[in-house]
Amino acid sequence: MTEKEEKKFTRRTFMKNSGITVGGILLGWGVSELFGDDQKKGTSTETVDLSHTHASGAHASEALLVFTLEQYRVVEAAVERIFPEDELGPGAKSLGVAVYIDHQLNTPWGNSSRDYMVGPFKQGTATQGYQGRQTNAQIFMMGLDALQKYTEKNYGDKFYILSAEQQDAILVDFENASGENKVQIDGISSSQFFQMLHSLTMEGLYSDPVYGGNKDMGGWKLKNYPGHQMTYVNIIEKEEFVVMEPTSLSSMK
């Protein structure tokens, strides 16, 4: 057994064991946060990190509105592959992108309430834009469901259990840059879902923290972006690069 296979095996064991053992006790504790730490801890089957749970101060606005815990874990793992944590700094997972996406699906954008949703719905040409009847939230949830099923069918496991390489391979199939159409979804294309996942990831990394992502303005810090500032009149002509401490819209109340 190679090291990689061993890791995968141990992680899976952890999931099964912990799921059964601690499920009941965890109900009031923010199960998603607990499960969400699995990848970060690597091979550990012993410790359960409670540091991010409700009891220790997770903010009420981080609760899920749309996703099940299972879906949340899949999304967290997927967006982390799009923008992974590394020596440069935090990734999409710790910056709260999955919470951001969950919340966005429950907005006017998610419900496509400002889109033209009147029929007849017909197949358009490549230049006629989206012609489906699904709302943005429906497209995302259809894609997410397909991602879970595709993973289960081809890898016999859950997306967030797989190795990073396996997760990447699945996302490549969904992105479908090769045009091989390995993933079929009724009513939408897998690349449409992937593009939406990608856009939502960028939004979750870099939108104002009021929307649930960009935790502690960590996304902005990666880009030296100062966020919401009232004036740059003293900076605009400067030759040297000026790094400023970012400020969010919450400073405007």
Partner: peptide
């Protein structure tokens, strides 16, 4: 919208 007369125009559903 459509590119040419021969095509059937379809609505711009999203503001892209």
């Amino acid at each position: 919208f459509r590119n040419k007369d021969l095509e059937e125009a379809l609505p711009m559903r999203k503001m892209s």
